[in-house]
Write a protein that binds this DNA or RNA. Structure first.
Lengths: 369, 369
DNA sequence: CCTATTACGCAACGCTGTTGCTAAATTTTT
DNA sequence: AAAAATTTAGCAACAGCGTTGCGTAATAGG
């Protein structure tokens, strides 16, 4: 994923990814579009386009006659040239989606998981679901891998589930390793909320700024997209947004502290006052904006999406009403464009991103004494 | 600073910066050290070292005889080969520091600023201070630039001060541009807290993980280092950490909301209960950890540093006592190693980082339709 | 004195994007 | 209808990066 050293093969992959990013952002594009967006020379773009076309990732789609001069060749992404499968593992259900290179969800299926399911039971469910989906159009050969988004805590870098909340059989399970062996596919493991925000970022293209996905679903979590990449924190534990204190004198939360956003919100929702619950959530969202200065806030999660307009209105109003917001401080607030599929779809897009996204260079070194 | 296109000149700069990062992190190093840390081939490292030595940035410092075999040449950074000046512009004072390539602060000077000073008055004060410092060892030729850390809001990318809080003459002032013209030096402008966390990151070297600088000084702010870079947010407005609500039923803050961390903390401090104030701050810090999963928390700011041990103890205890913290969730808490110089020094290091730090590739494109 | 070991670096190489220039395709002008 | 102007596409030579292959220098041990 990330690499330390930069050599010419990195250049190749990086600039190819830039062109792919243009392809995902714009429906169609031509050589001059890429030249403008990247600053590469036309000749270099020609070479990159030729390589991508040879791999079947893009293809010519007619010509553009801008008036005088030789017509420009118009290219487009080939969405069905690559696929990935995404899995959203929750406490009682498994959701599987099939996503193409353009970020379009083609199939979505939910199946129940046994209470307190074991790793083996999950693997079996995954195996059945993947075989069904991959068989639809015989796209096994174009399948780049499986992404899994699930509840934490987990260790993203090592593909290890540390202690999934509320699941007894999930202590230090090397899920990525055993899933790759069991399924014969590259597997990518991440927290659910992080996968979710990746979906939004991947679909919005390379111009997507700093953003958060707020998820209300048996707890409140946050997924962050900062500086062009998912933010996971030092131990893949970022996003425990529900356990930030918003009421010092509030009720005691399961986490031990008093007045966490989650417990305050839960009490209001339990009492049937969804509007109040939404306003509490909105306070937490504005807290995030003050801290992180986000360009986008995306709302998601089963409990939230039962009252989408109530939450959307409350958060939009709080963001807009905040007296400190000036004209240049704009933040968009929206419901997830993918609805209940957002986590699973994002997990799939993380796999696609590893292959066709803009590669990152490592920002930390290991230096001996 | 950031560039979109990757070409071979990027490779050159990037790998040179990797070696410089090793040099800053380890006091001395040799070829094999760099090979291990970066994954470059020994031959490539030799070439990079030769280039850096020719520029005077590193130099041989003896040999190491590991027993059998030809002795390895030991290199070290040449700290006095490059300098930068950092300025911390506060409401009533200007602090200037001279920092060398290794991140060591050589001189520090504080001068008063007129009440409601104008841009011209600031430029004059900067001019006088810089001439004094640059004259000390005739290091004008080794001066890479001036970094300015100041109160926001401002626009980092364009070097524009939007509306410095509490300063009347600072609306939409293109400070970077006019300072560069007036002083004849490259100028870098950033928020004070962002400059501060850069100081900590630069001094700790390339192994420094996600971190925050908590600053208590006529307000409460936070500077963030995430994913190997400073996090400024979508509008250079990240860090308004003091205006996050921690007490829904608390007193009204100047920002219009109720129970902001800043007002709750301020009330406690005003009442003389510093221990309580420190515990309030600690709640906010744990909120940050829950949200961002940080590896380091650094405490700074004049008001905090008047009671350093009280704050350090309160935050350390809150971080440690948080019931959700497991063995693998470690976070260090420390007072700023630079004390009152941290902002100014960090501003200087941002200049050095632009020249000798690890370059970044842009994560966003501009794509026309 | 010879050998094993370790570190260093020259030379050739493959690959990247760049530069210089030619060819092709179209509209506009003559 | 032919020539000129304009825009796009791409071949060929090039500079510069890290890599590879291999020879050389410097040390300790036998």
């Amino acid at each position: 994923m990330t690499r330390v050293t930069a050599d010419v093969t990195f250049l190749r992959g990086y600039n190819q990814a830039l062109v792919m990013a243009v392809g995902r952002t714009a429906r169609t594009f031509e050589r001059s579009t890429v030249v403008e967006a990247t600053g590469l020379t036309p000749q270099a773009v020609s070479k990159v386009i030729a390589r991508l076309a040879a791999d079947g990732l893009i293809r010519p789609a007619g010509v553009r006659r801008p008036g005088i001069g030789k017509p420009a060749i118009v290219y487009e992404l080939v969405p069905d040239s690559r696929y990935a499968i995404g899995a959203h593992v929750a406490r009682r259900t498994l959701r599987l989606v099939l996503v193409d290179l353009a970020g379009t969800v083609h199939h979505s299926a939910v199946s129940p998981l046994p209470r307190d399911f074991t790793p083996e039971q999950l693997l079996d469910a995954l195996s059945v679901g993947i075989d069904t989906m991959a068989g639809i159009g015989d796209l096994r050969s174009r399948l780049t891998g499986l992404g899994i988004g699930m509840i934490g805590p987990l260790d993203h870098a090592n593909g290890l589930v540390r202690d999934a909340h509320g699941l007894r059989h999930w202590h230090d399970v090397p899920l990525r390793e055993i899933a790759e062996k069991h399924l014969g596919l590259p597997v990518h493991l991440d927290k659910d909320v992080t996968a979710g925000i990746t979906a939004e970022a991947w679909r919005h293209g390379a111009t997507f700024g700093d953003a958060a996905l707020i998820m209300v679903e048996s707890g409140i979590g946050g997924g962050f997209w900062l500086g062009g990449a998912a933010h996971r924190g030092a131990h893949t534990n970022a996003g425990e947004f529900g356990h930030t204190v918003v009421d010092l004198t509030g009720p005691r939360c399961v986490c031990g502290r008093h007045g966490c956003l989650e417990i305050v919100h839960h009490r209001a929702a339990e009492a049937g006052d969804i509007a109040h619950a939404a306003r509490v959530l909105a306070v937490g969202v504005v807290n995030l904006l003050q801290t992180l200065d986000l360009a986008h806030v995306v709302l998601a999660g089963a409990d939230l999406l039962r009252h989408p307009q109530t939450y959307l209105a409350a958060v939009t109003e709080a963001v807009g009403a905040d007296a400190r917001r000036a004209a240049w401080l704009s933040t968009t607030v929206a419901l997830s464009s993918l609805g209940a599929d957002v986590i699973a779809a994002g997990a799939a897009m993380q796999v696609l991103d590893q292959h066709y996204g803009i590669p990152e260079l490592a920002h930390s070194l290991i230096v001996g004494s």
